[in-house]
Nucleic acid binder design. Structure first.
Length: 271
DNA sequence: AGTCGCCTGGTA
DNA sequence: TACCAGGCGACT
């Protein structure tokens, strides 16, 4: 569910609490979510201390004092919640880490798509290894966008959603960036001009920064690491606003399927 | 490059 | 009842 601004907000809300915590007990509750397997996870994580917390794309990365790392991906409906006074775990709980002193970190995930990957250096999750640059790496991102543009006639939306091109965009912020840049989501990527790539890059940075400043978009599932929703849903220009007036021209916001995803756009402002 | 599968839950 | 959902990998 969460995209870069949401995952980064989760990281920021957890950062004051997790580093330094000793994991006294581990409860992997949804076996299929664990790589390589829940038994290994239990064995390698119990008794370890969390040394740091980072984000890469939509992955949260916990480093442990035995050199191993945990990569958590929340996919569509995952939540990570830190609590110092835990209540009974919700129905769909993937993982609970219990800490010395009684606090816990709980991963809840109704749709059960989320993954928890324990690894050491070499065997990182393939999706993490293949991840493109973070959005702020302007030169690399623009180079990847242009390279994607030379090759094929896929839609520009599909390219923005491709985590190997740049890391962190999902369905919401992709639609928002394409609206800001005035580009039709289904435009073949080989017909984007250099000026438009530049404009699109600027729009991507803008919508991600806005989302982050509002602590994420909470439409259905998303809350931060302390259970607080974000407010960026109140500032979205087109996403989720089907049939409502375009903020620029008043035309009803259109909706169709592009790159396999529900897509919101303005047929007047975006060409 | 598009569609399907993975899952559950909310809403029309 | 049917369709939709902040993702992504495995299929054609």
């Amino acid at each position: 569910m969460p995209e870069l601004p949401e995952v980064e907000t989760i990281r920021r809300t957890l950062a004051p609490y997790l580093p330094g915590k000793v994991i006294t007990r581990v409860e992997p509750r949804l076996a299929k979510a664990f790589r390589p397997d829940p038994e290994t996870f239990l064995r390698e994580v119990t008794g370890r201390k969390i040394t740091s917390l980072a984000r890469r794309g939509k992955y949260l990365l916990l480093s442990l004092d035995n050199g191993k790392k945990i990569a958590i991906h929340l996919r569509m409906s995952g939540r990570l919640l830190y609590s110092e006074n835990p209540s009974p775990p919700p129905k769909h709980t993937t993982l609970i880490l219990h800490f010395e002193g009684g606090a816990e970190l709980l991963m809840e995930d109704p749709r059960k798509f989320g993954t928890v990957h324990l690894f050491a250096g070499k065997d990182a999750p393939p999706g993490l290894t293949a991840l493109g640059p973070e959005p702020e790496k302007k030169k690399e991102v623009l180079a990847n966008l242009r390279a994607a543009g030379e090759r094929r006639k896929v839609s520009v939306k599909a390219v923005l959603l491709d985590q190997r091109v740049l890391a962190g965009l999902g369905n919401i912020y992709t639609d928002e960036a394409l609206f800001l840049a005035g580009i039709d989501p289904s435009r073949p990527v080989n017909r984007i001009t250099p000026e438009e790539w530049e404009k699109l890059y600027t729009a991507i940075c803008q919508v991600l920064e806005e989302g982050l400043s509002h602590r994420g978009t909470s439409r259905r599932d998303y809350v931060d690491g302390k259970g607080e929703p974000g407010t960026h849903q109140d500032y979205l220009r087109v996403y989720g606003r089907r049939d409502q007036p375009c903020p620029a021209c008043g035309e009803p916001v259109a909706y169709k399927r592009v790159a396999g995803r529900g897509t919101h756009y303005c047929r007047i402002c975006q060409q």
